[in-house]
Deep mutational scan, measured.
Amino acid sequence: KVILLEDVKGLGKKGDVVEVKDGYARNFLIPQGLAVEATKGNLKEL
């Protein structure tokens, strides 16, 4: 699961917690600054 930092077409809006494949999160969303891993600490910051 990841928390979206920006609106991502076809996935969700900023602040949404979405389930995506590990590779998509690690190789695209997180490096592009579009999402962060949905850890307990990150979820509390919402």
Rank of each mutant, 00 (worst) to 15 (best):
G15Q: 03
D22V: 14
R26I: 08
K13F: 12
V36I: 12
I30N: 02
Y24C: 05
T39R: 05
V18A: 04
K9D: 09
L29A: 01
E45N: 13
A35K: 00
Q32D: 06
N27A: 12
V8G: 00
G23K: 11
A38T: 07
L4F: 02
V20E: 02
G15A: 03
Q32L: 12
E37H: 10
V17M: 08
L5C: 07
D16L: 04
A35L: 01
K40T: 14
K14W: 03
K21F: 14
T39D: 11
K40F: 15
Y24P: 02
V20N: 02
V18M: 08
L43G: 07
A35V: 04
D22L: 11
V17Y: 07
F28V: 05
I30E: 02
L29R: 00
K44S: 11
N27I: 09
L34E: 01
L5R: 07
K21L: 13
V17E: 07
V20A: 03
E6N: 12
E37A: 10
G12C: 01
K13S: 09
I3R: 08
V36Q: 08
P31N: 14
D16Y: 08
I30T: 02
N27P: 01
F28Q: 04
G41N: 13
V17A: 05
K13Q: 11
L34W: 09
L29M: 03
G12H: 00
L11T: 04
L34D: 02
A38W: 13
V18N: 01
E6H: 13
E45A: 06
L5Y: 03
P31F: 13
Q32Y: 14
E19K: 10
I3L: 12
E19I: 12
K13C: 10
V8M: 09
E6Y: 15
E19V: 12
G23W: 15
D16C: 10
E45S: 08
R26F: 10
K1D: 05
K21I: 12
L5S: 04
V18Y: 03
Q32F: 13
N42I: 05
E45K: 07
E45W: 08
I3P: 00
K44T: 11
G23H: 12
L5H: 02
Y24S: 03
F28D: 03
K13T: 08
G23R: 11
V18T: 03
E6Q: 12
K40V: 15
A25P: 02
L11W: 09
V18R: 05
D7H: 10
G33L: 09
D22F: 14
K13P: 02
D7A: 10
K9F: 12
G10C: 12
G10N: 12
G10K: 05
G33V: 03
E45C: 10
K21C: 12
L11I: 09
K9T: 12
L11M: 06
G33N: 09
L29D: 01
T39I: 07
V17G: 02
G33F: 08
N27M: 13
K1G: 04
E37P: 10
A25D: 04
L11K: 02
D22P: 10
L29G: 01
Q32G: 09
D22Y: 15
L46M: 10
V36F: 05
G15V: 00
G12R: 01
K44V: 13
L11C: 05
L29F: 02
L4E: 00
V2E: 00
K9E: 11
A25N: 03
L4S: 00
V20M: 03
E19W: 15
E6L: 14
F28P: 01
P31H: 14
I30P: 01
V8S: 02
A35M: 01
G23P: 12
E45Q: 10
D16K: 05
K14C: 08
N42W: 03
K13R: 13
E37G: 06
K14L: 05
Y24G: 02
K21E: 13
K14V: 07
V36E: 07
N42Y: 04
L43H: 06
R26C: 04
N42Q: 07
R26V: 06
D22A: 14
R26A: 08
E45H: 10
K14I: 07
Q32W: 15
K1V: 10
R26Y: 09
E45V: 04
A38G: 06
E19Y: 14
L4C: 01
G41C: 13
L34Q: 05
F28R: 04
L46P: 15
P31G: 13
V8Q: 03
E19D: 11
F28W: 11
D7G: 06
Q32C: 14
K21A: 14
Y24K: 03
I3Y: 12
Y24R: 04
K9H: 12
K9P: 14
E45Y: 05
R26D: 05
G15Y: 11
F28G: 02
K44R: 08
I30C: 04
D16I: 04
A25L: 07
V18F: 04
L46H: 15
G15F: 11
V18Q: 02
D16E: 10
V17D: 02
G10M: 09
L34C: 06
E37L: 14
E6S: 14
G10L: 07
K44D: 15
T39W: 05
G12V: 00
P31V: 15
L4M: 04
F28H: 06
G12N: 00
K40C: 13
D22C: 13
L29C: 03
D22R: 14
I30F: 11
T39C: 08
V2K: 01
A38N: 06
A25Y: 05
K13H: 11
D16V: 05
Y24H: 06
G41R: 11
V36N: 04
K1I: 10
G41K: 14
K9I: 12
L46R: 13
A25E: 02
F28E: 04
V2L: 09
E19A: 09
L5F: 03
V8C: 06
G41A: 13
L5K: 08
V17C: 06
K13W: 13
P31R: 15
K9C: 09
V36H: 04
G15E: 02
A35N: 00
G10I: 03
T39S: 09
T39Q: 07
D7K: 06
E45M: 04
L46A: 14
P31D: 12
K1F: 12
L34H: 04
V2A: 02
L5M: 10
V8R: 04
L11N: 00
G10R: 06
N27Y: 15
L43I: 09
F28T: 05
K44H: 15
I30R: 02
L34R: 05
K14D: 02
V17L: 08
G10W: 13
G15I: 00
V2I: 11
L46C: 13
N27F: 15
Q32R: 14
E45L: 06
G41W: 03
K44Q: 14
